[in-house]
Amino acid sequence: MKKLFIPFVLLGVSLNAQITTFPWTETFETSSTTAAAWTKIYESGTQEWSNVATAYYGYTTGAHQGDLMAEFDIDSFDGDATKYVSPILNLSSVNSPTLEFYYRNKDWGGDQNELKVYYRTSTTGTWTLITTFNSSISDWTNSGTLTLPSPSATYQIALEGVAWYGCSINVDDVLVKSGILSTSEFDKKKNTFKVYPNPTSDFINIKSEKRISEVLIFDLAGKRMNQIKEDNNEVKIPVHQLPTGTYIIQIKNTEGILNSQKFIKK
């Protein structure tokens, strides 16, 4: 089927809007200056993304915060897929940009829709898959921190819903920010954590002055290789299963501060 590209056209909203200040949060509220600049690409079928206050089916509560959220509708079970495409993000000067959001994706009697996350580095570029969420999530859940590879001045992300007759897919509070502390921030916090040994063959040890809440490991292409939820000042992560190469480890503490560091797996 021929792909269709249909933008929103609203008075006073530029479809060429570009985000240049980060962190940037999309709330999908009517007060958001960028909510109407999201566009849709119908990869197959005509299933809709829209900004709504009430979920079509499957949930008793509304948006994660505020009044509105993005929703992928559910009246199909043929694998119809539609991308919800962000405005252009100028990430050319953002250090190690990351993406996270809140979502829910509840199954319906065992039928499970899929939420896929893509990026492209230009408005006509090829889409590259970052990750897929295809398990039943009945309440608002954080996506975890996703690395955005190959940052450019004309970057876009896409949330793709794939319809397999599950409940509605809801997304809210999309956040794009730098994944690495600025120099001044790092100077203040550089002694708060330690990652060792580096290089390593079997384990990475993390020691932090603040309690660690989450550890993620990515390869240099941005693929998430591991994610560990924690509540401790010291963590030991097995890495023996990883292929030899260089990886990025991201450490989030209980105060929400995110640190990133490269390590080498021998």
Rank of each mutant, 00 (worst) to 15 (best):
L4R: 14
L4N: 13
V9Q: 12
L15F: 14
T27C: 05
E29Y: 07
T30D: 10
S32N: 13
T33A: 15
A36I: 00
A36W: 03
W38G: 02
I41L: 11
I41G: 05
A53C: 06
Y56K: 05
Y56G: 06
T60P: 03
A63S: 09
D67K: 15
A70S: 12
D73R: 08
D80R: 07
Y84P: 07
L91R: 04
S93C: 08
N95T: 11
N95A: 10
D107L: 12
W108H: 12
D111K: 13
Q112D: 14
Y118S: 00
Y119L: 05
G125F: 02
L129Y: 04
T131Y: 13
S138I: 15
T141G: 14
T145H: 10
T147W: 09
L148I: 11
Y155N: 09
A158M: 02
G161V: 12
Y165R: 10
V174K: 03
V174E: 03
V176G: 01
L181F: 11
S182F: 08
S182L: 07
D187V: 11
K188W: 09
K190N: 12
V195P: 01
Y196V: 11
N198M: 02
S201P: 01
S213D: 06
S213L: 02
N226I: 13
Q227T: 08
I228M: 09
I228G: 02
E230L: 07
E234W: 02
E234G: 02
K236N: 10
H240K: 08
Y247L: 04
I249Y: 03
I251V: 15
I251Y: 04
T254I: 10
T254L: 08
K266H: 15
